[in-house]
Design a protein around this nucleic acid. Structure first.
Length: 234
RNA sequence: UGCAAGCACGACUCUACC
């Protein structure tokens, strides 16, 4: 089962849903993990209905399966369905709460988001990071800062999320400060910084940033390209 | 007991929805 499901996962990750389905149907004794993998495959590529169909047909559901289904709705912006499922869950963990928090924040529901935040029974690094992003999205930069400052541990995602929070609220300087203070930067951090400059029209900084990047992936190149395009420099 | 499979967090573009 393990090998079969790994194969299924390989198809799923590459978006080969038909192939994934074929593998799924061939698995002799599917377990809850195989089912969940199939569910997520549909969800990730924009088929929440299909995901739900899988969910309904599952012989057994554990919390990961429930979480995956909540996330399936969340990812596709189905707030009501997600909420319904959330309420119906036999038990929830920090993953569940984080998904809901993110869903509300991404759709501008401040109240819902802060409600999730307050009621969350436990928090971990991912939850904190999601909170920073949520505050950034809702324009509550101060709260994002507070959250960031109070975190006992931070990873590159925390730093980049905070950098982005500054950037999307028009504070390039704050963004730059984060960038300079980060213990480690990956390509995402670099691109985020580059974008921050681009949005302010600081093409010179954009160029410098791009040149200084240790590695450039396609997203970095695209960001540079659109930066030039946006400032009219074809 | 170890190795191998499923869920939540950060960047660009495109597409869909509004």
């Amino acid at each position: 089962v393990v090998s079969w499901t790994a194969l299924l996962q390989a198809y799923a990750q590459n978006g080969h849903l038909e192939g994934a389905k074929r593998v799924f149907d061939m698995i002799p004794d599917r377990n809850v993990i195989s089912w969940t993998t199939m569910l997520v495959a549909y969800a990730q590529f924009g088929h929440p209905e299909q995901a739900k169909a899988v969910f309904d047909r599952m012989p057994t559901r554990d919390m990961v399966a429930w979480n995956a289904m909540v996330q399936a709705y969340a990812r596709n912006g189905h707030i009501e369905e997600a909420k319904k499922l959330f309420d119906a869950m036999p038990e929830r963990n920090v993953v569940t709460w984080t998904s809901m928090l993110q869903l509300y924040a991404a759709n501008g529901h401040h109240e819902g988001a802060s409600c999730m935040y307050r009621l969350m029974p436990e928090r971990n690094l991912v939850a904190w990071n999601a909170l920073i992003t949520a505050y950034g999205e809702t324009g509550e930069l101060e709260r994002a800062k507070l959250t960031f400052d109070r975190m006992r541990e931070r990873n590159t995602i925390s730093w980049t999320a905070m950098l982005q929070a500054y950037a999307e609220n028009g504070e390039v300087d704050g963004a730059k400060t984060m960038f300079d203070r980060m213990p480690e930067r990956d390509t995402v951090s670099w691109v985020t910084m580059l974008r921050a400059y681009a949005q302010e029209g600081h093409m010179k900084h954009v160029q410098e940033t791009f040149r200084a990047m240790p590695e450039r992936n396609m997203i970095a190149w695209t960001a540079l390209l659109t930066a030039y395009a946006d400032c009219g420099n074809l």
